[in-house]
Design a protein around this nucleic acid. Sequence first.
DNA 1: GACCAGGCACATC
DNA 2: GATGTGCATGGT
Length: 220
Amino acid sequence: MQKTRQQLLEIYEILFQAFGPQHWWPGQSRFEIIVGAILTQNTNWSNVEKAIANIRAAGCLSPEKLYALEPEALETLIRPAGYFRLKAKRLRNFLQWLFDAYQGQLETLDEVETRRLREELLAISGVGPETADSILLYALDRPVFVVDTYTARIAVRHGLIEPEIGYDQLQYLFESALEPDVQRFNEFHALMVCIGKDFCKPKPKCAACPLNGLPHTIQE
DNA sequence: GACCAGGCACATC
DNA sequence: GATGTGCATGGT
């Protein structure tokens, strides 16, 4: 455990030195962050930006306005983000939960305990672990570590975990080794994505990866 | 043209 | 429980 902690802190320091603060999550409001979290599922962020710009231009970047849209109109706005029919449903599923359980008020979520909130988010069709945790960390400031495909690849390639480990176990690895620190978790995940985009493709492309200097890097 | 992107649900075995 | 498949646009 202590060894894992040291490895993780070492990785964090190298990434932070290499790339600097990432200023995540890009978004001007909690609601925009949540919309982005759903739209970015398996999708390049630049496509998500186009979709969010469409929603903003339509004056619909609030729970009330977005929920009031006809489903087809919502699909049209988010089309650039890909999977637009699916994601329109997922956004509406989230909004239905928000209005049914919390009167459409995001502030009300501040009263809810993190574990229970996570369970409720996961019960929404279209909100899986990464989306739920992104919402909790980046929109609701809860100390939850967000795991994604890059995090898993990096952890495997640096000998921290076995390839077959699941989301919850990988999250536990980080959360049990590090202090629950919203700002640190924020920056760590953002840095993982940053390095992942350039160096952690499915087919490894790691020649110039800043993490290569680590003694425990596994060559593929 | 192939590959990839800040996943998730569902069917099938 | 593991594995495969559909979902879709846009950049490299």
